[in-house]
Write a protein that binds this DNA or RNA. Structure first.
Length: 303
DNA sequence: AAGACGAAAGTGGTTGA
DNA sequence: TCAACAACTTTCGTCTT
């Protein structure tokens, strides 16, 4: 029997392999188990025209252009070859099937094109962020719903796709920050935020603000902290939440501060600078939150 | 030399009249 | 639509290790 791999973080055996990155990722928490340390920059190989269209970094309009360019010009309606001879049997059937596809592809429905482009963009971003498949699918589903409810018109596709991805990450319990989405997107953090709110309202999404606890594992991994420390951080956070001192505060700052405190308590010290870095907040914010936590929870820090 | 700390002024987004 | 407001950032000087 083949030994099955398990995520060391959450114990899930649902692992997913991203061939474009050469990485093995946990579908549950997003932890990267294995990666080929070659080059972290976005660089893909394309094995055929379709992949090339999807993966080209200059990307945007290529898909749409190729869409028609390759297919609409070269299939004749007659069952004859270039010499004028009848094409028979299996080949004729094949030709007819090709024609059928050709007709389908040529549907000029704007919505279809819109969707095709949106999904390829989604693909690109999800791959670049090493997100598990189910997140990508959730995002695609959100986007389709948005299209059906006519929420897209007049808005940038890229913005709405980004918003759908952001929402999907949150719904699947592995939230990414707006900044992280913006990095692989072509629109700004601000626009994504706006689009997201619009999308959430339009689809009636149940959007509870992200809990800081959800960030602990990922930030903790990036800081190479032990499970004990991460658990400690979570515990600190849930106490803080209970005391109601977290409302209105940025979840990322809180997660960062909790990890910092937990690091001190567990003898795995990280500098405020390091913690702030992975959480995408400033040292000052880490400090402020950490002061609060220590005060309100009466935590004694060992010297 | 690097980390931790905190004051002060500035920024972008939400809220309420 | 505007102004007040809270959270967060930026910047910078000081203290500690």
């Amino acid at each position: 029997m083949v030994e099955k791999k398990i995520c060391p973080i959450c114990g899930s055996d649902k692992l997913f392999y991203d061939p474009s990155r050469g990485e093995l990722v946990c579908a549950n928490c997003g932890y990267v188990l294995e990666q080929n340390a070659i080059d972290s920059g976005p660089e893909w190989r394309a094995f055929d025209a379709d992949q090339k269209a999807k993966r080209a970094r200059t990307g945007a309009p290529m898909t749409l252009m190729i869409h028609d360019k390759g297919l609409s010009t070269d299939i004749d309606w007659r069952d004859r070859d270039i010499h004028g001879n009848q094409i028979k049997g299996m080949y004729r059937t094949k030709m007819r099937r090709l024609r059928m596809w050709q007709r389908r592809m040529r549907i000029n429905d704007a919505a279809e094109r819109n969707l095709a482009f949106a999904l390829s963009e989604l693909d690109r971003m999800a791959a670049q962020m090493r997100l598990p498949r189910r997140v990508k699918e959730a995002a695609a589903s959100l986007y389709r719903k948005a299209v059906m409810r006519k929420l897209i018109r007049g808005r940038s596709i890229e913005g709405m796709v980004s918003a759908a991805l952001y929402a999907a990450c949150r719904m699947e319990g592995i939230p990414r920050t707006l900044e992280e989405i913006a990095r692989v997107s072509k629109v700004s953090k601000k626009d994504i935020g706006r689009s997201y709110r619009f999308l959430a309202r339009g689809l009636g999404l149940n959007l509870k603000p992200t809990s800081p606890v959800e960030y602990v594992d990922r930030f903790g991994d990036q800081l190479a902290l032990s499970q004990a420390t991460k658990n400690r951080a979570k515990k600190i956070l849930s106490e803080a939440i209970q005391l109601g001192i977290t409302s209105g505060k940025g979840p990322m700052g809180l997660a960062a501060a909790a990890l910092y405190v937990a690091g001190l308590l567990e003898g795995e010290k990280r500098t405020q600078r390091e913690v702030a870095e992975v959480a995408h907040v400033t040292e000052v914010t880490v400090r402020n939150r950490y002061k609060e936590l220590v005060d309100k929870l009466h935590i004694n820090i060992p010297l």
